[in-house]
Lab assay of single mutants.
Amino acid sequence: MKVMIRKTATGHSAYVAKKDLEELIVEMENPALWGGKVTLANGWQLELPAMAADTPLPITVEARKL
């Protein structure tokens, strides 16, 4: 699914347009965010693609819901 990742004042957030859902990312498998699992505030887990740590945000990526 397409997910937009952006930086907020409190960390990172994910927006899933198909579900009209925006949630804070509360847990990251990798400190650089990319190439691992993230957990959203509502409990969803997404697998993000591997990208460079300095990838500019906001960005829309293809993520997989676990």
Rank of each mutant, 00 (worst) to 15 (best):
P49N: 00
N30I: 06
R64F: 12
L24W: 08
I59G: 00
V38W: 04
W44Q: 02
Y15P: 01
A14S: 01
D54Q: 07
L21K: 11
G35A: 05
A41S: 11
V16P: 00
D20T: 07
I25A: 00
G36L: 06
L33M: 14
L46K: 00
Y15V: 09
V38D: 01
L66W: 10
L24E: 14
G36M: 04
A63N: 02
R64P: 04
A14L: 14
N30D: 07
P31R: 08
E22P: 04
L40S: 02
W44D: 05
M28Y: 12
H12E: 02
T60K: 04
T60E: 14
A14W: 08
L21R: 11
K2Y: 13
G35I: 04
V26C: 09
N42R: 00
W34C: 02
R6A: 10
R6L: 11
K65Y: 15
E27N: 10
E22T: 11
E47D: 09
T10A: 12
T55L: 05
P49R: 06
V16F: 15
R6V: 09
I59E: 01
T60M: 11
V3G: 00
L48T: 00
L40V: 00
N30S: 10
D54H: 08
R6M: 11
L66G: 04
K2S: 12
G43V: 03
I25Y: 00
P56T: 11
E22C: 13
D54G: 10
W34L: 04
M28L: 07
T39S: 07
E22I: 08
A53G: 09
N42P: 00
G43A: 03
G36S: 05
A9N: 10
M1Q: 05
T39Q: 07
V26F: 04
S13P: 02
M1N: 04
E23N: 07
W34P: 02
K37V: 14
K65D: 12
E23P: 01
M1L: 13
A63V: 13
L46G: 01
E27I: 09
A14Y: 11
N30H: 12
Q45T: 13
L40T: 01
T8P: 00
K2A: 12
L40W: 03
A32E: 14
I25M: 01
E22F: 10
D54R: 05
L57R: 02
A14T: 05
D54L: 07
L33S: 03
Y15K: 09
K37A: 08
W44C: 12
N30Y: 12
I5F: 03
A41F: 05
L33E: 02
E29T: 09
M1A: 05
D20V: 07
V16W: 15
P49Y: 05
T8G: 07
I25S: 02
G43H: 03
D54N: 11
T10Q: 13
E29Y: 06
M51T: 01
T39Y: 08
W44T: 04
L48R: 01
T60A: 07
Y15H: 08
L57K: 01
P58I: 06
N42Y: 03
T10E: 13
G35F: 05
A14K: 01
A41D: 02
G43Q: 04
L40R: 00
I25N: 01
L66P: 05
Q45M: 13
A17H: 14
L48H: 01
G35K: 03
L66V: 14
T39G: 02
A41L: 06
V26T: 10
A9E: 12
G43K: 02
I5C: 05
A9Q: 11
N30E: 07
E62W: 15
D20Y: 10
V38N: 02
L46Y: 07
L24Y: 09
V38Y: 04
V26N: 03
L40Y: 01
P56E: 12
K65Q: 13
W34I: 03
K37F: 11
Q45W: 08
Y15I: 10
L33F: 07
P31K: 11
W34Q: 01
R64E: 07
E23Y: 15
M28R: 10
L48C: 00
A52Y: 07
N30A: 07
A41W: 04
T60R: 04
G36Y: 06
E47N: 07
L48E: 01
A17G: 10
K2H: 12
E47I: 14
Y15Q: 08
G36K: 03
L33Q: 02
L21Y: 08
A32Y: 14
K7L: 10
A52I: 06
P49G: 06
P49V: 03
G11W: 03
W44P: 01
T55H: 04
L24N: 12
G43F: 05
K37H: 09
E23T: 13
T55Y: 04
M51P: 01
T60P: 02
N30C: 11
V61S: 03
T55R: 04
I59S: 02
E27R: 10
P58C: 06
I59N: 03
M51V: 05
E27M: 10
I5L: 05
G36R: 02
S13W: 15
L21H: 09
E22L: 12
A50I: 12
P58V: 04
M51F: 06
N42V: 04
N42A: 00
M4I: 14
K65A: 12
E23R: 06
L66R: 07
N42H: 02
A17W: 15
L66S: 08
P49Q: 03
A50F: 13
A32D: 14
L48V: 03
P31V: 10
A14P: 00
L46H: 03
G11C: 06
I59A: 12
T10K: 13
E23M: 15
D20Q: 12
A9I: 11
A41Q: 08
T39H: 05
A41H: 06
P56H: 08
L46Q: 00
A17Y: 15
